[in-house]
Simulated assay, not measured.
Amino acid sequence: MKVVFPRASKGSMTAVLVNTAGGVTGGDQFAFEARAGQGTHLTLTTQAAERTYRAQPGEMGQITNRLTLDPGAQVNWLPQETILFQGSSVRRRLNVDMAADARLCLAEPLVFGRAAMGEVLTNATFQDRIEIRREGKPLYLDALSLTGDVAAHLARPNIANGAGAMVTVVYAAPDAVARLDAVRAHLPDTAGASLIQDGLLALRILAADSHDLRTSLVPILTFLSDNTLPRPWMI
C-alpha cells in the first residue's frame, strides 16, 4: 500500500490510497491511520474500486482503518466502491475519533459481485463495522455481516429486494439538520436519510448496480463535501 498526495488546493489536502496488490484476499492484512490536525481539512479516497478476491478455505482478509479528527478539523472519508467477488472472505473495520467541533463526511460504497460478468455471490463472507465516537462517546455504530449465499439473502424483499450495490453515508457536523432536505431531494426511491440526532445525518442507498449507485451518490457527496469530491471519483 502507498499514499499519493495530489496538488493541494488552498487550505486543504487530498490523499489517495493505492493498493499496489490490486485487491484483497484471504490472509492479507491492510491497516491505515490518519490524523487531521487542529483546524485542517483532509479528504481521503482510493485510486480505484477495491476488489476482494476468492480466499482459501479458513482464511480471511483484514482491513482496518482509523481516523482521528482534532478540534476544528474536517475529514472527508470517500473511498471508491469495494467489490465483493465470489468466494471472497473479508473483515473490515473503520474507527473514527472526533473532537467536539470536528466535521466528518463518510461514505462506504459496496458492490455485490461483478454484474457485467454475470457473477452471483452464492459463497462469500463480508463483515463490516463502523464506529464513530465524539469526545470518546459513541456517536454512530453500525455493523454488517454477510455469509454464504449473499445473493439469496439480498433478494429478500425486506432485506434489499435484489439490489446489486449499496452505500452507507454519514455526515457528522453542526449543520447536519440544514442539509437533510437537500439530501433527500437527491435520493432515489430505494434510499432513505434520517437525522439520527442533532448534528448527525445518516443515509443508505440501494441500487441495481454500481452505475446506478454512482448516479445517485455523486451529487450527494459533492454537496456534503462542499464541492471537494476527489478527482478519482470523476474518472
Rank of each mutant, 00 (worst) to 15 (best):
P71G: 07
E108G: 07
T125M: 13
A178V: 11
N123H: 14
T46P: 01
T147G: 07
I83A: 08
S216I: 09
S216W: 13
V3L: 13
V218E: 15
P138K: 00
E50R: 07
P79V: 03
Q74A: 15
R231K: 11
L195F: 03
L201W: 04
G148L: 05
Y171C: 02
T52A: 11
A100I: 12
S12I: 02
G39R: 13
P174G: 11
R66V: 10
A176C: 03
R184N: 04
G61I: 01
V111M: 14
G11Q: 13
G26S: 05
N19R: 12
G58H: 14
D28K: 10
V96H: 01
V169I: 09
F85L: 09
F30C: 15
P138I: 00
F223V: 05
L146F: 13
E131K: 00
G87Y: 11
T190G: 03
L106N: 02
F126S: 04
F5W: 15
V169C: 06
G37N: 15
V75P: 01
A182S: 15
T14V: 09
A143K: 06
Q74E: 13
V90C: 04
P219T: 13
G61F: 04
I130G: 00
Q127V: 09
I235Q: 08
N65H: 01
T122R: 14
V4N: 09
N65K: 05
A151M: 04
L141Q: 10
A48N: 10
M98L: 15
P71V: 10
H211M: 05
Q62Y: 12
E81V: 12
T14C: 03
V183Y: 00
D142W: 06
L154K: 12
R204Y: 02
R231E: 11
A21Y: 08
S225Y: 05
V4P: 07
A155Q: 13
L42S: 06
G118N: 03
A116H: 08
L44D: 09
F32N: 08
